[in-house]
């Protein structure tokens, strides 16, 4: 097996992992801070793709779609938190889980009614069509762009959480919401913002995945399963975990595809099983924390 092929394979694994990271991140942040297992995450990923496509065709530019869809769907997420999820805080974890599970059906059916259940083409932005010659092989420009964009988003997110006052409040709120309230912080607003951020990340993942896959109402269901696997491997609620596990899963899928392609989908579940056996809390999870 020649080396350049393995490097190309690694690169496709990283590109695959990048989308996984973005979607798993939204899921893990919302769970880590709010304790809500968001089963509508995949549906919101799909809604993001449709919103991106719609906005891109409205404005005539993919870039507006990429920018506006996460903002718009993030705001929609805040509305969901404010109207629905807020009422279930303090109850058992099953309640928001069931609520979001139901919500995912409503969203998928809604899209079927509005846009139809056939797939819709999501054209690649003209600047990123075609392949780049890397010397060892050709790689689609768009996928390279996805890797770069995800890296930037991760950097911004990290700076925001670690270096700003808002980030400090968010981290403290995740650890002990009661003390935060005693200290005079309106924790409700923090949770609103966090849920919005989680949903915006799902939508961003959807817009990014759009030009790689066709856009259809069911595109979120597989993504939801993948995102869960990634968060479980990385450790529920861990941001670093989501990033490491996302890339790990992407690269494993890719390398397995090289040697035993028919096993490519199973490998991530095998990885999850192994991690759970050895480290039940996930790679970066906190011991004792259970979903």
């Amino acid at each position: 097996m020649d080396l350049s092929l393995i490097i190309m394979q690694l690169l496709s694994g990283i590109a695959l992992g990048a989308v996984l990271v973005i979607t798993a991140l939204g899921l893990t942040i919302v769970f880590g801070m709010l304790g809500v297992v968001n089963f509508a995450h995949g549906a919101l990923f799909m809604i993001g793709a449709y919103a991106g496509l719609y906005l891109a065709s409205l404005t005539g530019s993919f870039w507006w779609g990429l920018l506006l869809a996460p903002i718009l769907i993030g705001a929609f997420g805040m509305l969901i938190e404010f109207v629905l999820i807020r009422r279930l805080y303090g109850r058992s974890i099953d309640d928001p889980l069931l609520l979001t599970f139901g919500l995912s059906y409503v969203l998928v059916e809604g899209v079927r009614i509005v846009f139809g259940s056939d797939g819709i083409p999501f054209p690649t932005p003209p600047q990123l069509i075609g392949v780049l010659d890397l010397g060892i092989g050709f790689f689609p420009r768009y996928r390279l762009f996805v890797i770069a964009l995800v890296a930037v988003v991760l950097l911004v997110l990290w700076l925001m959480l670690e270096k700003t006052r808002v980030g400090l409040i968010v981290r403290a709120g995740a650890r002990d919401p009661t003390i935060m309230q005693v200290l005079g912080v309106d924790i409700g607003r923090v949770w609103l913002a966090i849920f919005g951020l989680g949903v915006a990340l799902a939508a961003l993942g959807g817009v990014l995945a759009g030009p790689m896959r066709s856009v259809n109402p069911e595109m979120g269901s597989l993504v939801l399963a993948e995102a869960f696997v990634v968060t479980v491997i990385g450790g529920l609620g861990s941001i670093v975990g989501a990033v490491v596990a996302g890339l790990m899963v992407g690269i494993s899928i890719s390398l397995v595809a090289l040697f035993a392609p028919e096993m490519a989908t199973i490998v991530m579940f095998a990885l999850m099983a192994v991690v759970l056996l050895i480290r039940p809390q996930g790679l970066f999870g906190v011991k004792g924390r259970t979903a």
Partner: peptide, 19 residues
């Protein structure tokens, strides 16, 4: 190359097919 039924991503098969 056999791929799993219902796969969403085929990128991982492409380098080998091209080679």
């Amino acid at each position: 190359i056999l791929h799993p039924f219902g796969a969403a991503d085929y990128s991982t098969f492409m380098p080998r097919l091209m080679s």
